[in-house]
Simulated assay, not measured.
Amino acid sequence: MMKVFLTGAGGFIGRNLIKKLHEQNIEVLGCDNTGGRDDIKKISLLDYDELKKQIAEFQPDTVIHLAAIALAIYGNTSEIYNVNVVGTEILLKVLSEVCKNKVKLILISTAGVYGNQSEEFYHEDLPFNPANHYSYSKMVTEYMLRQHPDLEFTIVRPFNIIGVGQRQVFLIPKLVEHFAKKSRELHVGNLKPERDYVDINYCVYILSELAQRNDMKHSIYNICSGVGHSVEDIIEILAEYSGHNPEIVVDPAFVRKNEVWRMVGDPTRLLDFVNGKKCSDFRKTLIDMYEYSKNNMI
């Protein structure tokens, strides 16, 4: 039986990925800061000794490194670099020291490493141009892999992953909640920036394929749909479907000073890897999130 070690296992992507891997009869050992399940241990990425002990005992075939502080607006800059950069270096060191066979590492980076670009669709060969500390930290982790030639690695750059069960600290679930509650006012930042939104089920499908297959032609893959939507588009879809039209207030507190105005991925490389299987329709995912939020309001 194939064995996968998964960091950040208790997060949005992690929870869905564990379910997907279990469905495929893959043994999974996850870690995060909370634990609470037999297959998820409470281990900090910064705890070298415990991380080394667990990985040495488990001897994974593949490691999927999801754990990170992933909010672009997270206020504690030093903690971003401590967890995302120092934590990754500790993980890489442990893998080099204790894995008896050559382990495959899937590093989850971010499309944020591209920042603002002149290209309409962001392909994997574009130069780095990160616009916030989270994206800078992920750029550093990509460079760090070059110091570990003993590891076989694939870098994944997800665009905006969305779906049922996502925390409301992120834009889409926050908008969905306001429409489900029929809030009279909706406070937002810039309305014009376009993002490439990807359904969580497609994301974990891609990650499970990368974990199991060895026929990758490239070392870096976007996870994207190739279609962009602005905040205006999202509000329009939710208003049309729900029949609710809140007052839209552009709040300076939510306006980013260093905005990336369009971030839409080029899925060419990804689609070649999965034989043309595309992401599900954005509108369907958005409506699924709305219906779930409406039916599960406290």
Rank of each mutant, 00 (worst) to 15 (best):
I64C: 07
N132S: 11
L91I: 00
I73V: 14
K52R: 13
K102Y: 05
K42R: 08
Y48P: 09
N116M: 06
H65E: 01
L126T: 01
A68M: 07
L95N: 05
A131V: 08
V103E: 11
A56S: 13
D49H: 11
N101K: 15
G75C: 12
D61Q: 07
S44G: 04
D61R: 10
E57F: 12
E97D: 15
Q59Y: 08
N84D: 00
S135H: 10
E79A: 15
A56M: 08
K41C: 03
E97L: 11
S78K: 14
I80F: 08
I64H: 07
I69K: 03
Q59C: 11
T141M: 01
I55T: 04
K138H: 05
E119T: 00
K138I: 01
F58A: 02
I43L: 03
F128L: 08
S78L: 12
K42N: 04
T88S: 03
D61W: 08
D49A: 11
V83G: 04
I73S: 15
V113I: 15
L71T: 00
K93V: 02
K100E: 14
I43F: 01
Q117K: 13
V103H: 14
Y122E: 00
V98K: 10
K42Q: 05
H65C: 02
M139F: 03
D125M: 13
P60L: 03
Y81W: 10
R146K: 14
L126N: 09
E120C: 12
K100I: 12
T88H: 01
S118Y: 03
K102T: 04
V63Q: 03
A70E: 06
E119G: 06
G75A: 12
S137Q: 09
S44V: 02
E57I: 13
T62I: 04
K93I: 04
I69T: 03
D49R: 13
L71M: 13
K42I: 00
V86G: 08
N132P: 14
Y136K: 15
A56D: 09
N116R: 09
K104H: 09
A70D: 04
E97G: 10
P130M: 08
G87N: 04
V140S: 04
G112T: 00
I69W: 02
T77D: 12
L51N: 01
S118Q: 11
S96N: 14
H123D: 14
K93G: 04
I73Y: 13
L145M: 13
T77E: 14
Q117F: 07
I64Q: 06
V63Y: 05
E97F: 09
I40H: 08
Q59L: 09
I106V: 07
S109N: 10
I90E: 02
A72Y: 06
I106A: 10
K41M: 05
A111V: 03
V83Y: 05
Y114D: 00
T110P: 14
F58V: 01
V63K: 06
Y74R: 12
I80E: 01
H123M: 09
A70N: 10
E50W: 06
K53R: 15
S118I: 02
M144L: 15
L105T: 05
G112N: 07
K102F: 05
G115I: 01
G87P: 10
D125P: 14
F121T: 00
A67Q: 04
E89G: 07
